[in-house]
């Protein structure tokens, strides 16, 4: 459990962090350390340099303005779980990540940069249509969550790019929810479904659904959305729409010793239905 040798710098600003990382051939960025430190200890990651973002105050905090909420990359899951400004689906999911220690140290930016397929946050951000704001040597840019997650542990971040914040739209008429089946050992998701819905006159007017934990990356559940969009919201329509998640998950479903691929496929519709029902109940 001793990592191989590396250097360490504490960046004072995002600019410095970008400069340090991009000018080094084998650097890793350290945020909350809850994915990276275990990887270092197991020597699965052997960087020569760690660039610590921990003291950059500008990267922390949740702020709301003009119909969006902006979450700094270093904001902890515990802060997200306690936030009233965030859509419910996010705060709910944040409260289900790991355990109190993990939530108090683990960060939004670190989580999504790692792109663990079993992580909860990618699912939530896809459902919310989040924009991931990053900064690199070429300047800042924003990446839609749908495009940010590329594959297992792979994002569309360029070399040297650092996540600065995540922005999600908030609309008061939306209801949202996250439903999760835990891996009892790791507490990651065997399957997590995030849903955000707007209802008018008992009819589903707007809907975004995403699923994660069972596929190499979190996916948008287009089939579920299509099946419910414009429909009256009731148990029958929800069950019917939720059943379409099988088409969204596709063939590439992951299995492990606690949950086979077949099991995950089989329970997905019920988990999706729960997320949809909970989101609908919160919409007004």
């Amino acid at each position: 459990m001793y990592p191989s040798k590396f250097d360490y710098v504490r960046a004072q600003s995002v600019e410095e962090a970008v400069e340090r990382t991009s000018s080094h051939s084998n650097a890793k960025i350290l945020a909350g350390g809850h994915s990276l430190i275990p990887a270092l200890k197991l020597r699965l990651a052997q960087p020569d340099l760690l660039v610590d973002l921990g003291r950059i105050a500008a990267l922390k905090g949740i702020s709301r303005h003009n119909g969006t909420v902006s979450v700094g990359a270093l904001t902890t899951h515990a802060a997200c779980a306690a936030s009233d400004d965030l859509p419910k689906v996010w705060s709910e999911a944040a409260g289900l990540i790991g355990d109190p220690q993990v939530r108090n140290r683990g960060t939004v930016g670190g989580n999504i940069a790692h792109a663990d397929p079993a992580s909860d946050l990618p699912t939530v951000l896809i459902a919310l249509g989040a924009q991931i704001h990053v900064q690199g040597t070429a300047g800042p840019r924003a990446i839609p969550a749908d495009e940010f997650f590329v594959d297992l542990f792979t994002t569309s971040l360029e070399e040297g790019e650092i996540i600065t914040r995540v922005e999600v739209p908030v609309e008061s008429n939306q209801g949202s929810a996250y439903t999760k089946v835990f891996n009892p050992a790791s507490r990651y998701a065997i399957l997590g479904v995030a849903a955000q819905v707007a209802i008018a006159g008992g009819v589903c007017r707007q809907l975004r659904v995403a699923a994660g934990g069972s596929t190499p990356k979190a996916i948008r559940a287009h089939h579920v959305e299509a099946a419910l969009q414009g429909q009256p919201i009731n148990d029958t329509t929800i069950q019917h729409a939720a059943a379409a998640i099988a088409d969204d998950l596709g063939e590439e479903v992951i299995g492990d010793m606690y949950a086979s691929a077949a099991y995950r496929r089989s329970i997905a519709a019920q988990i999706a239905a729960r997320a949809l029902s909970a989101a609908a109940a919160r919409a007004r």
């Binding site: 355990d99 891996n183 009892p184 050992a185 790791s186 507490r187 010793m257 606690y258």
Partner: peptide
């Protein structure tokens, strides 16, 4: 502990 599930 990622695969061995202890009671929490």
């Amino acid at each position: 502990f990622m695969d061995y599930a202890m009671p929490r």
